[in-house]
Design a protein around this nucleic acid. Structure first.
Lengths: 363, 363
DNA sequence: GAGCGGAATGTTGGCGCTAACAATTCTCCA
DNA sequence: TGGAGAATTGTTAGCGCCAACATTCCGCTC
């Protein structure tokens, strides 16, 4: 009458003629199991279609092998790609990835998402949500939670992996200046995003270091083509505008469209440079010169950083005298003194991809 | 010397002056707990920062409240959006979502991903990977696994939620025909994708039902702008081509570019229609007429369908005589006879978004 | 005020697994 | 051949929680 409930370790043990502990040892690759025994156990496992119970294992080992990813909008190209990179790397390291989308952009939502993930006992968390509010909220997360922010600017006071937005923006701006433009206008991204702030800073720095006049920037509420389009209509008639550095490729697309509708040509009348290098950028009209960032790599690096943080906090089994919930903990501060903990920070260099949307100005 | 290990239910019980079982009752909203007691327990929980141990709970309830999502490329707009919709809906239903990306497109990878998810004891799986191979491989997944395919065409023999690609394609094609084009060429998506096949079928059907000649289709290996560009260069010179229905918006973008580079104008010389309605489509040059599908909704519906399947298979606690691992099971077949199980299938209608890339042909 | 029934709480027994320790083999050399 | 010591296997005791059953408490009725 036992029904056919899923087989457990004891069932395997019975069939293989060993104790359940031996089965456990086989499963965990312990040494000191005779080859013949191991084979018998494996055979029994196959015969029964046995699958270890993850919950039971977690209960005793205190390891879930699960990582959490918090993100705001996985629909955007950047976040989606980073998630992809993270998942790939996680699989390779034997970790599961569970995602928690932010319902809104306030502190509360961020903390909620983190709580949700903690309830599920993830061993660490990666945050893909480069907004100032988010980074601010993250400061409230207790330090025993292993946390890495990815693409969240390079100045946040937490472990992070990010592209050097400032350098990328500076490079793009300088490129336009070198082409002979008197100045470069900037169509900035949303102020609430750190990337946008940093790109703006890079643009400004390039201008200032060359003594070029600084106009603007043109600010916007999102990263969409619509925004680019609207600003484009406004500036297309201005003869003083000969070069525009856009905060991302989508706004560049919208700008391109507006400028051309207004009867001005790119790059002959106006040069445009974007940021991101989305796959379509090459097929814009004209093909977009842009700053490339490797999102996939960003994701992989973030994961690697997180794994390291987790690894440092020994995942002690509960039998030992563990000092804390062994899953989730930031690396200990370098010294027991008041020194601030060392915050791992990785920066990746972006590169300028030259295509056809920027040229020397007409005289 | 106890260290400060994470508090457990017994700790809460001690502080609140009750038994751990009463704490459990409070946590699970059981009736028959005096209000005053409940408050004391809640206070103790807060004081200790107690967080229930998910693994322990899972061990006894046999519920993980976790769903798995298998996907191939979350970088594409469609899949990314669907994932987003799924996550939103899952959160609302109190489920976690863990993702498993496919390493490659063969059967083996698909089955691996499913296994990975099953190892983690997900209660059900949503598959976002509309390739024929994937759907084929899915047939090998044991029937006790609750499985829903999303955006995987409408003909697959498994529970699915999908847009009616055929109807959408037919609508787009008919629209062009109605405009006065003698025929419509089709830039098809990759053959291995069901969506591509169905869109092609819809295109063909529209043509045939009007007695219009069928040329092509132009086939391609992926959904990228590059593909559209390459085909565009080939057909731009052909005066017989006055209207092209593209399998998706990205290829349409590439096509647009190629056609215009060749000196022909859209829509005056050639009309173009896409599929998907990505956010940027409105800002292409010209704004793209396209078939809109609501990916977000697709994701939400898929989740709903999955939850229903899971719900039907009673998640019996292990004390009762359960017939199988209570997590993960498809709905029972309608009758105990040999009749095939009823496969839930949801179809969503796409709509044509008319913008500026299609017009009547010049005579 | 004894007795009854239901509400509120406590006690006990696993869920399936791993770690520690105990017990049993083997191996090999004195 | 008799062990010493290593290799292999088995036994026991939880991990933190929920469900069943047992017990206590309370408000009533007669």
């Amino acid at each position: 009458m036992d029904g056919d409930r899923a087989p457990v370790m004891a069932d395997v043990a019975r069939i293989a003629g060993v104790s359940h502990q031996t089965v456990s040892r086989v499963l965990n690759d312990h040494p000191n199991v005779r080859a013949a025994t191991r084979d018998r156990v494996h055979a029994a496992i196959r015969e029964l279609g046995y699958r270890p119970n993850a919950a039971a294992r977690t209960l005793v080992t205190r390891r879930t092998r699960t990582l959490g990813v918090v993100s705001f909008n996985t629909t955007l190209y950047g976040p989606a790609s980073m998630l992809h990179g993270i998942e790939q790397a996680a699989k390779q390291q034997g970790y599961f990835v569970t995602v928690a989308a932010l319902a809104a952009l306030d502190r509360r939502s961020v903390l909620d998402a983190v709580e949700r993930l903690r309830d599920q006992a993830v061993e660490g968390i990666i945050v893909i949500a480069p907004q100032t509010t988010v980074v601010g909220a993250l400061a409230n997360v207790p330090p025993e939670v292993a946390l890495v922010a990815v693409g969240c600017g390079t100045h946040a006071s937490l472990a992070s992996v990010a592209v050097d937005n400032e350098a990328g923006a500076e490079r793009a701006t300088s490129y336009l200046l070198d082409l002979g433009h008197r100045t470069v206008h900037h169509l900035a991204g949303p102020r609430s995003w750190l990337d946008a702030q940093e790109r703006e800073a890079g643009w400004r720095r390039a201008l200032e270091s060359r003594g070029a006049p600084v106009f603007g920037p043109l600010t916007s509420g999102d990263w969409s083509a619509r925004t680019g389009y609207e600003h484009g209509r406004r500036i297309a008639g201005d003869p003083g505008v000969t070069a525009v550095f856009c905060a991302n490729d989508h706004t560049a697309l919208g700008l391109l469209r507006a400028v051309q509708l207004a009867g001005r040509r790119v790059p002959e009348d106006i040069s445009v440079i974007g940021f991101d290098d989305i796959p379509e950028a090459e097929y814009f009209g004209p093909p977009l010169t842009t700053v490339r960032q490797d999102f996939d790599e960003l994701g992989r690096r973030a994961l690697r950083a997180l794994i390291e943080m987790i690894g440092e906090a020994a995942p002690s089994p509960h039998h030992a005298q563990h000092a804390h919930g062994p899953s989730m903990s930031r690396p200990p501060s370098g010294s027991p003194s008041l020194a601030r903990p060392v915050i791992p920070r990785v920066t990746i260099e972006p590169s300028l991809v030259v295509r056809a949307s920027a040229a020397r100005p007409r005289r």
